[in-house]
Amino acid sequence: MIKRAFNALKENRLVFYGLTVIAVLFLLALLSQVLSPYGTFEQNLGSRLNPPSLKHLLGTDDLGRDVFSRMLYGIRISLSVGFVAVGISVLIGTLLGMISGFFGGKIDTVIMRLVDIMLCFPSFFLILIVIAFLEPNIYNVMVVIGLTSWPGLTRLVRAEVLSLKEREFIQAARLLGISNFRIFFIHLLPNVVSPILVAATLGVGDAILTESGLSFLGLGVQPPVPSWGQMLTAGKEYIYVAWWLSLFPGLAILFTVLAFNLLGEGLRDILDPRLLKRKT
């Protein structure tokens, strides 16, 4: 089973490209202090708005800071926001979805109504309000994105649990008198992991996009800490004289999110039990 999954992983080009890019990003983030040719916050007013060159690979910004070094630091911001936000939303979404599907009845109605309500709000507006009234910083951004992105996952997990509940092995477990608690965590949870994994991977990309959008509007990560979205806003002012300030951070966002989307879609192909059956 594991071997087959591993082979499928190797064969699936989407997963391969996605994982490669993500692995490289992780490495760059870990080694960013070593790799940065200049300090993240190091200003050098003597070399303002220098175009890309061997000395400054991606040029310098309006304060003479090295764009390459700042973008390396930005990887950390994007990845941490993506993973923490998704962690929060997976925790809430999985729990609510499983409770809703497993227990049914009134509890199910209440949770599902809450999901309906949350899905009506343009989540970006809710996030904007909360961030604007709290202090905009990276921690608030992570938490608020996480707290607003669980409803879709709740629906997904609930549907999965509803169909699992009718399967023989759960019926058998019930007949054997196994406690609800055990059925819930030992028998149901492992079986909903694959759809959650797919949704979470795609969710990381979405969270990174949301963070960059917030930072672009000045409501995300605050300067001087560099986030790609915020670097774009700062670069916008100099778009005529310094195109590199607006190009590279945008490309970085695009390719990072693309990597997570490729990985997510690839995982969906691999983990879809219907596809597995067809291959064996």
């Binding site: 774009l232 005529y240 607006s246 945008g250 966002i253 999110v257 693309l258 989307n261």
Partner: peptide, 22 residues
């Protein structure tokens, strides 16, 4: 499609404004 899903649209907006507008 994959690029569409992954595009920071505000950035695309910025680029298109520069290209077509300015």
């Amino acid at each position: 499609v994959f690029i569409g899903f992954s595009m920071p649209t505000f950035w695309l907006a910025l680029l298109l404004m520069i290209l077509f507008g300015l």
